[in-house]
Amino acid sequence: MSINGITPEMLEGAPTLYQIIPSLQEFIGDMPLLGHNLEFDLKFLCRAGLDITLDKRKFFDSYVLAGSILKKPKWEYDSELGCYSPNYDKPYDISDYKLDTLCRYYAIDRADEHRALGDCIDTARVFRCLLQEKIDTTEDFDA
C-alpha cells in the first residue's frame, strides 16, 4: 500500500490472479513480452498458471537493457563508514535502474505510476529511449 497506494477496499470484488490467467494467456498469445524487471513479474504469473514456454517467444526487459547501456556508480568499500557504498565521485549515468529513475533520466512524465496501464506505457517509452540510445551508440561505433 505504501508503494502503490492500493488499499484493501480497492481490491474488494476484484478477480484473483488465478481467475484472470486464462484471459491473460489468450491476450498475449504468442506475442513477444516486454516488461521492466520482467523476471520478477513472470515468477508470480507462472506460479498462477501462465504458460510462457513457446519456443520462439521473445522477451524484452528494459531493466536488463538499461544495465547494458547505462552505468551505475561503482560500489566501493568506505573505510570511514565500515561498509560498501556507491562512489558518486566517479563517472556514472544513473543512480539505479528503477523504472521511476529511468523515466526521470529520459524526461518521461509519469502520469499514472504504479498502476498497470501507466507502468506498461512508461516501460514502453523507456524501452524506446534505450533502443534509440543503443542504436545511436552502435552507429557512433561503426562510423
Rank of each mutant, 00 (worst) to 15 (best):
S79F: 12
C129Y: 00
L38P: 00
F141D: 12
P8E: 15
E26M: 12
L70Q: 02
F27N: 15
L45M: 09
I121V: 14
Y97F: 11
G29I: 07
F44D: 07
K71L: 09
T137P: 01
A14Q: 13
L117S: 10
Y106H: 06
M1Y: 13
G67I: 06
A143D: 11
Y84F: 13
Y77G: 05
T53A: 08
C83E: 11
L33C: 04
I6V: 15
D142E: 12
A107E: 10
R128N: 13
D41N: 04
A48C: 14
W75G: 04
S62M: 02
Y105R: 03
D136E: 15
E26F: 10
E133W: 02
S95N: 10
I52W: 04
L11S: 13
L99F: 06
H114C: 08
D30L: 13
D89S: 14
K134A: 15
F127A: 04
C103Q: 03
H114P: 02
E113Y: 07
G13T: 10
L34T: 02
P32I: 11
I94E: 00
I52H: 05
L11E: 14
Y18W: 07
H114W: 07
L33N: 00
C129P: 00
L33D: 01
R47I: 05
D140K: 12
D51V: 03
L81G: 10
N87F: 09
G13Y: 13
T101K: 02
L11H: 13
G13P: 01
G82N: 08
D100P: 03
V64W: 05
Q19L: 10
C120A: 15
L50M: 07
L38S: 00
Q25A: 10
K74Y: 05
T123A: 04
K71D: 04
Y106I: 04
E139Y: 09
I135N: 14
F27G: 13
Y97N: 01
G13Q: 14
K43V: 13
E26L: 13
K90F: 06
E26N: 14
A14C: 11
T123R: 00
K72F: 06
E26A: 14
E133A: 10
L131Y: 03
D119K: 05
K74V: 12
L131D: 05
L38W: 02
E133I: 06
H36N: 02
I52L: 07
Y106D: 03
L50D: 01
L45K: 01
D142I: 09
G29N: 12
C120R: 01
E80C: 06
R125V: 02
D55R: 05
I52S: 03
T138A: 15
L38I: 08
E133F: 05
M31R: 15
F40R: 04
E113C: 06
I94S: 01
C46L: 08
A14W: 08
W75T: 09
E133K: 05
L42C: 02
L81I: 08
N4T: 10
D112Y: 08
